[in-house]
């Protein structure tokens, strides 16, 4: 017990890094994903091609590789990120691609008649999206977004590769130093707690959207 309280502060400070990356990635990549999905279904062909290429690139290569390229590769062409910024940049870029595909599916599930119905009521395109289409899309995509959200908590452990001190790294350091697996057990428990909170919040969101069909 004494040992636990000794290593807990370092684990918690690692967990804080995990939470920060998780939170900011989610906050940025969901709206960006919506925008990108609108581009993926746009009538402007070059925009569609560029976004399709982007999604293919982001989903087609490991996130680990993308992290390495952002932090070690981009400085070669003069773009230098701090470790933390590099991690956020890579995560947002990667997760936006996944979210874009999820939202694209959601948008395509909306009946064309909904747009027409809004149009004869003289709603603008922005009003139609905001009041009618996006709420329906969100309801459709919440379960898939939930999946990605849970994945993101665990994916955030990849930041060790560019030397950021997250939860898993903190556990690794303690394990190597003290020759015991206990820190990694604690790491597992903390991840479980974080995913439990995320699961709970996601369930609340799903319940909120259950009042209509």
């Amino acid at each position: 017990m004494h040992y636990v309280s000794e290593i807990l502060p370092s684990l918690l400070s690692g967990a804080w890094m995990t939470i920060k990356i998780f939170f900011w990635t989610l906050i940025a990549s969901i709206p960006l994903g919506i925008l990108a999905s609108l581009g993926l279904t746009s009538r402007i062909a070059p925009l569609r091609w560029i976004l399709k290429f982007y999604v293919w690139l982001m989903r087609g290569t490991p996130l680990l590789l993308q992290l390495i390229f952002v932090f070690y590769g981009l400085p070669i062409i003069g773009v230098i990120f701090q470790r933390y910024d590099a991690a956020l940049f890579a995560f947002i870029l990667n997760y936006t691609a996944y979210f874009a595909e999820i939202f694209r599916g959601g948008f395509q599930a909306i009946d064309q008649g909904q747009y027409e119905s809004a149009r004869v009521l003289r709603l603008t395109r922005a009003q139609t999206l905001r009041k009618i289409v996006i709420p329906q899309v969100v309801k459709i995509v919440v379960p898939s977004i939930g999946n990605e959200t849970i994945n993101l908590i665990k994916d955030s452990s990849l930041v060790y590769v560019i030397g950021l001190g997250d939860l898993l790294r903190a556990g690794n350091v303690a394990t190597a130093r003290d020759v015991t697996l206990l820190p990694l057990v604690l790491v597992g428990v903390i991840y479980l707690l974080m995913t439990a909170v995320a699961t709970f919040v996601l369930r609340k969101v799903e319940q909120h959207y259950r009042s209509w069909r």
Partner: peptide, 16 residues
């Protein structure tokens, strides 16, 4: 110059 339409399948907004 508004022309109102009642669609065959109504197209009410399910979220409202």
């Amino acid at each position: 110059n508004v022309i109102g339409v009642v669609f065959q399948d109504f197209q009410l907004f399910p979220n409202l």
